[in-house]
Write a protein that binds this DNA or RNA. Structure first.
Length: 931
RNA sequence: GCCGAAGUGGCGGAAUGGCAGACGCGCUGGAUUCAAAAUCCAGUUCAGGCAACUGAGUGUGGGUUCGAGUCCCACCUUCGGCACCA
């Protein structure tokens, strides 16, 4: 019986760990803490795919390793269970999302537990639990009750917001409105991304190229009443606080790009038809640059104030509020038509397809403040209302978009920047780089950087401009018109004023609805919950907010709930937070590089400002696991006339330059061969074929289900293979043969210790209590050192190969001392915990090995007595010799000179140099020789 | 277009500037077996040679160095992200 049989040992140990709560994290323990977090999954109906266990295995190895190293490890798991897919599925099948969600969670939990991860299951969280929703709503109320104090550079309670005197005089309503304008959670009536197919609005981040990120449905702009979160106030800190984090540079860069900070200037252009221009300029010189521009002034933002002299026209966004006021009678109709068209355009139309610039002249002119020239004011949809001031000064000589526009409409182009001599300026394209100012009055001859600061100073003195910083990041659109999400803890009165729900009344439950389908209009499904909708408070009737929160809400703070998952009096206990936070290591997919990580950091900073958490950042170290692709596939293309070589296709299954669809034929290994750097048909080497791995997808039919792998090879083999495939961060293709390879390795480990011909679980007679030899000890200690270093650096693939080498070393030994085997089992245990526990038990131990100290190594025992020295002539290996490990360089060179081959090859030649180099593998002597 | 990552055998991948290809897969040969599977042993970058060995070789072209997969410059390809953000 005791051949290696995962189906017997894996459930046995999984049950043991659960029953004994082996992996319980102890709050406030005296051991050093280590908080290691996985991005919790959205429990979809498809169940786990092999991408999930990749990150989970990596963190599990570290969690188990750290426990053996004496750490108090917090390693939890939970479910991000609100969200669109469950609800879409519910709508399609009529099953309540609570039911499908519960079912999916049960599947996910079963699958995850079948892989033997060492989670503390007492801390499992579910974002849809009322006990969890309670605190998500509580955090929302905290956002609602916070304003951002620019001076102190932090969020503060809304009660502390100073109210200006004139507001106080205007009465209660005015004070409330004033506060509402400053809350981090506020209501806006603005054009939003409405996706009719999903029946909800979407955040900017959820719209890719004008279609929804989920499902790829078209999105249109619609003005609606929405909850927004003032994330932009935290933009600067979200950028700056990235610096000390131990995150991949690429992810930091993506966040910085997303926030998109730019420095420049705001400049005011007085409209030419305004009266008293001279007076205006004089007044501005005295008063300085006002917070808000006057009625007849167009304020622009530019990153290139040095090009002001080249501004030959202005453009307002079609939605710009000034448009109505400035448009002349003759242009009224054209402008109105254009604005209607622009409003009707979806984002897709405005970006991707319509690269040709469009626009209309308003008939108005403005005065360029630097030279008092009159320049025309246009409207065009290439200027976005949501960025900067919604208006630009156009410098067609040095901005590609302005150049295109000016060319299309015959507007003047004045060069004001001389490109540096070595700059490559392409024909027909404008120069947008830095150079030297020309045709620019007071800044002539200055390099761009100096010109910028000089002109900004001048603008400041004149009161017509000032330095300014802008961000691409917009405030976060936080409401959705869907059923399956957290209700807002907010009440509305008949006038549309909003009031927070008392914290004693939390959570606001999600009402049970028979009909939770979207209404087909922007009216959310919760408006159908008649009993739930109306609330009486102090004799007055209120209506509940019917929007729900987006899926991101729950995942913004789940790492805090793990710390204190059952606390009903608070989201988490302050002392426990102080002990466990921050998360030491956070592992997950790179697809969350921007959205989830940015949102969570934002919430965390607000909580930090309010004193609820003690670190400004939640996640100290971040690692992204790479994507796992399907097995490598060979595909040949065939037309009715026969095979078509790869270079004659367009890469999308069509004949290049023609619309002929080709037949894609899956080819087996032996139907192809490699020729040079290409794969070709074996039967016709002139036909190149496609050889690559594809993303796993249902439609492609290349999805690997972890259940099947566990069923056939066991969880230990799956875990080991996922780690052995290659570096954690890399994208890599799946190979079932590879799984078989590590499974064979596990069998070899088993047979090195266990007598597989015995009926009972028994050790091999070769397993002895004897002292290991010096050589054996050396290999053991080198292995301990190497495996430990590799795990610390998360090089799991090479750690496993070192274990394989060690087993290959043990295999031929006739006597296998336990002193070699026990460390092997311990080192294997983070990777293949079930087998390790089983072997540990077989070796005579009664307790789990989860807390047995990690084997220590002795540097002295790692040393070899005798080493092999490579002898090179002109860097080519020509001979080898043995030498004592401690021989000095002179001795090595002397010995090398004696070497027969070296003597032969250096005779009659001039030896210029003799070098001794210590390398990873040993030592090397190189003779540099000249003829 | 911009930003980022990566290009090494038939495949996944190893290599603090110092013996390229560890480890695994696949393949070839052998042992074991009535036979097969499993297992074990040997070989396996390419070219030439029975062999010892010799030459070439880490996307391409240059450079630094006694020495480059690794560092520098230019380019090509693939993947990921962003894309009218003034």
């Amino acid at each position: 019986m005791p051949t290696y049989f995962p189906k017997r040992i894996e459930p046995k140990w999984q049950q043991y760990w659960l029953e004994n709560k082996t992996f319980r994290a102890v709050d406030g323990d005296s051991r050093p803490k280590y908080y290691i977090l996985d991005m919790f999954p959205y429990p979809s109906g498809d169940g786990l795919h092999v991408g999930h266990p990749e990150g989970y295995t990596a963190t599990d190895i570290l969690a188990r390793y750290r426990r053996m190293k004496g750490f108090n490890v917090l390693h939890p798991m939970g479910w991000d269970a609100f969200g669109l897919p469950a609800e879409q599925y519910a709508v399609e099948t009529g099953t309540h999302p609570r039911i499908t969600t519960e079912r999916n969670i049960n599947t996910f939990r079963r699958q995850i537990q079948s892989l033997g991860f060492s989670y503390d299951w007492d801390r499992e969280v579910n974002t849809t639990d009322p006990g969890y929703v309670h605190w998500t709503q509580w955090i929302f109320l905290n956002l609602y009750n916070t304003w951002y104090d620019e001076a102190a550079d932090r969020g503060r309670p809304i009660d502390e917001l100073p109210i200006p005197g004139d507001v106080t005089k205007a009465g209660e309503r005015a004070i409330a409105d004033y506060r509402n304008e400053h809350r981090l959670a506020y209501i806006a009536h603005a054009p939003v991304n409405w996706c009719a197919a999903l029946g909800t609005v979407l955040a900017n981040e959820e719209v890719i190229n004008g279609v929804s990120e989920r499902g790829g449905h078209p999105v249109t702009r619609l003005p609606m009443r929405q909850w927004m979160l003032r994330i932009t106030t935290y933009a600067e800190r979200l950028i700056n606080d990235l610096v000390p984090l131990d995150w991949p540079e690429a992810i930091k860069e993506m966040q910085r790009n997303w926030i998109g900070r730019s420095e420049g200037a705001e400049v005011d252009f007085l409209l030419a038809e305004a009266d008293g221009a001279e007076q205006w300029f004089a007044d501005r010189g005295k008063s300085g640059f006002p917070k808000q521009a006057e009625e007849m002034v167009v304020r622009v933002y530019t990153t290139r104030p040095d090009t002001l002299f080249g501004a030959t026209y202005m453009v307002l966004a079609p939605e710009h509020p000034l448009v109505d006021r400035i448009t002349t009678a003759e242009q009224k109709e054209a402008v109105a038509t254009y604005r209607e068209e622009a409003a009707a355009k979806s984002d897709l139309d405005r970006t991707d397809l319509a690269k040709d610039k469009t626009g209309v002249f308003t008939g108005a002119y403005a005065i360029n403040p630097v030279d008092k020239r009159k320049i025309p004011v246009w409207i065009a949809d290439y200027v976005l209302m949501g960025y900067g001031t919604g208006a630009i000064m156009a410098v067609p000589a040095h901005d590609e978009r302005d150049h295109e526009f000016a060319t299309a409409f015959g507007l003047e182009i004045i060069p004001v920047v001389e490109p540096p001599k070595d700059a490559k300026v392409k024909e027909g394209v404008c120069f947008a780089g830095e150079g030297t100012a020309i045709n620019s009055g007071l800044i002539d001859g200055l390099p761009t950087k100096k010109a910028k600061s000089r002109i900004s100073d001048w603008l400041g003195e004149q009161g017509v401009g000032r330095k300014a910083v802008n961000y691409k990041l917009r405030d976060w659109l936080f409401s959705r018109q869907r059923y399956w999400g957290e209700p807002f803890p907010v009440l509305l009165d008949d006038e549309g004023n909003h009031y927070p729900v008392e914290s004693d009344d939390l959570p606001v439950p999600l009402p049970e609805l028979e009909d939770f389908k979207p209404t087909g209009t922007p009216e959310p499904p919760l408006s159908k919950a008649k009993d739930w909708l109306t609330v009486e408070r102090d004799g007055k009737n209120y209506r509940r907010e019917t929007n729900t929160m987006p899926q991101w809400a729950g995942s913004c703070w789940y790492y805090l709930r793990y710390i204190d998952p059952t606390n009903s009096g608070a989201g988490w206990d302050k002392e426990k937070e102080n002990y466990w936070m921050p998360v030491d290591l956070y592992v997950g997919g790179a697809e969350h590089a921007v959205l989830h990580l940015l949102y969570a950091r934002f919430w965390h900073k607000v909580l930090f400002d309010l004193g609820y958490v003690h670190t400004p950042e939640p996640f100290q170290q971040l690692v992204n696991q790479g994507m796992i692709l399907g097995e490598m596939e060979f595909v040949g293309y065939r037309s009715p006339e026969g095979w078509v070589s790869l270079e004659r296709t367009d890469g999308k299954g069509f004949l290049k330059g023609a619309k002929t669809a080709l037949e894609a034929v899956s080819l087996s290994n032996d139907q192809v061969k490699k020729e040079g750097s290409d794969f070709v048909l074996a039967e016709d080497p002139t036909i190149k074929v496609d050889a690559r791995s594809y993303k796993m997808s249902k439609s492609r039919g290349n999805v690997i289900n972890p259940d099947h792998v566990v069923d056939e090879y066991g969880a230990d083999a799956l875990r080991l293979y996922e780690m052995f495939m290659g570096p954690l961060e890399a994208t890599k293709p799946w190979s079932m043969k590879g799984v078989e390879g590590v499974w064979r390795f596990l069998n070899r480990v088993w047979r090195v210790i266990v007598d597989d011909r015995s009926e009972e679980m028994a050790l091999l007679p070769a397993v002895v209590d004897a002292e290991p030899s010096r050589d054996e000890l050396r290999v053991l200690h080198q292995t301990i050192r190497g495996v430990g270093d590799d795990i610390d650096a998360m090089r799991f693939n090479t750690a496993i190969s070192k274990l394989m080498e060690f087993v290959n070393f043990l295999n031929p030994l006739e006597k296998r001392p336990k002193a070699l085997l026990e460390p092997l089992v311990l080192m294997l245990s983070p990777f293949a915990p079930h087998m390790a526990e089983e072997l540990w038990e077989a070796l005579g131990h009664e307790e789990t090995l989860a807390y047995v100290p990690w084997p220590a190594f002795d540097e002295k025992l790692c040393q070899e007595d005798e080493i092999e020295v490579v002898l090179q002539i002109n860097n080519k290996v020509r001979s080898r010799m043995k030498a004592a490990a401690d021989a000095d360089d002179a001795a090595l060179i002397a010995a090398a000179r004696e070497d027969e081959k070296i003597v032969e090859m250096t005779s009659g030649k001039q030896v210029i140099k003799e070098l001794v180099v210590a390398s990873r593998k040993g030592k090397l002597v190189n003779f540099v020789v000249k003829d």
